[in-house]
């Protein structure tokens, strides 16, 4: 019994870390653009495919060290996704900036379709699932009576390190301060001499890079990636962002773990739970939106009149 719970805890922390990385992107984008970037899930998916390509290349080059390959996967997919995200922003979202919610929303949905379909069409065998490269997939160690998986532990640690890095970046650096100022009030930030365009671009760099890493992690964990896996992750990600309060960067950091906890608990406690775990995540999304629209952390009032 105790072992299963520990195992569930480890599972929760692993997927929670991925959700958090994705959620941070959603919340960053919403902060600066008041846009729910539905295409962000596809960036996550692209991250996975980039990681796969890196693994293929590494094999061609004869690289042996698993750690090195994983490191390369992380770094390169971060870079690729950052650029893709910034391109999306530049060519699709900037032209519709400030337009009615519906227009921005449909734009991001459409961008998502483009990315997904492009991978499906142009990646070799894009319509089929691809086995992912994961060097430590069978390695585990024993801690008392509990068996722990190296990959999972590695993912938990690296997501914590990354999230902490984001926290430092946002809280302590000039770049982060500009981001927060822009989230708070775009016009005021502009008047204070902040180049809002650059801040928004940086935000897309950062958020998309994190999404890309999460894509690689997902591959390492589940050993298989598909062109249409982005959408589910997008929903988990923005649910996590909403739970933390859309636009609230620190909130997103724990929102991911809450979503993961709900999933793990549903699977553990409800018969046939795994079929309904997504239903509960969406319910969580709706309930939080309706009753605590500014997230579980705080509740300011709206201004009228």
């Amino acid at each position: 019994m105790f072992e299963t719970w520990i195992q569930q805890l480890v599972n929760g922390l692993t997927i929670g870390g991925m959700y958090t990385l994705v959620a941070v992107g959603f919340t960053l984008f919403f902060g600066v653009l008041k846009l729910i970037n539905f295409a962000h899930g596809e960036v996550f998916m692209l991250g996975g495919f980039t990681g796969l390509v890196v693994a293929w290349l590494a094999e061609d080059l004869g690289l042996q060290s698993g750690l090195l390959i994983i490191f390369l996967m992380f770094v390169i997919s971060m870079g690729v996704c950052a650029v893709i995200g910034a391109l999306m922003e530049r060519f699709a979202y900037r032209p519709v900036r400030g337009m009615p919610v519906l227009i921005m929303l449909v734009t991001s949905l459409a961008v998502g379709i483009v990315v997904r379909e492009a991978v499906k069409e142009f990646f070799p065998e894009g319509a089929n699932p691809h086995a992912f490269y994961s060097p430590f997939k069978y390695d585990s160690f024993q801690l008392g009576s509990v068996v722990l998986d190296y990959t999972q532990i590695g993912l938990i640690l690296s997501s914590i390190v990354l999230v902490y890095g984001v926290y430092l970046l946002v809280a302590k650096t000039w770049v982060g301060r500009a981001m927060r100022a822009t989230s708070e009030d775009l016009d005021a930030a502009r008047m204070m001499g902040i180049d809002v365009d650059i801040v928004i671009r940086n935000t897309f760099f950062l958020g998309s890079a994190l999404g890309g890493v999460a894509g690689v992690m997902n591959g390492l964990l589940y050993l298989s990636i598909r062109f249409d896996m982005g959408w589910v992750m997008a929903i988990k990600g923005f649910t996590a962002a909403v739970v933390g309060g859309l636009g609230n960067i620190y909130g997103a950091m724990f929102g991911g773990y809450i979503v993961a906890a709900v999933e793990v608990l549903v699977v553990a406690l409800i018969p046939e739970g795994s079929r309904y775990k997504d239903v509960f995540v969406f319910l969580l999304l709706i309930v939080v939106l309706v009753f605590r629209p500014s997230g579980l952390l705080r509740a300011p009032e709206k201004k009228m009149g």
Partner: peptide, 14 residues
């Protein structure tokens, strides 16, 4: 606005 879009989206997925 956004929140309504997310609620109806979640509803559709459920």
């Amino acid at each position: 606005d956004h929140y309504l879009a997310l609620v109806t989206l979640g509803y559709g997925l459920i």
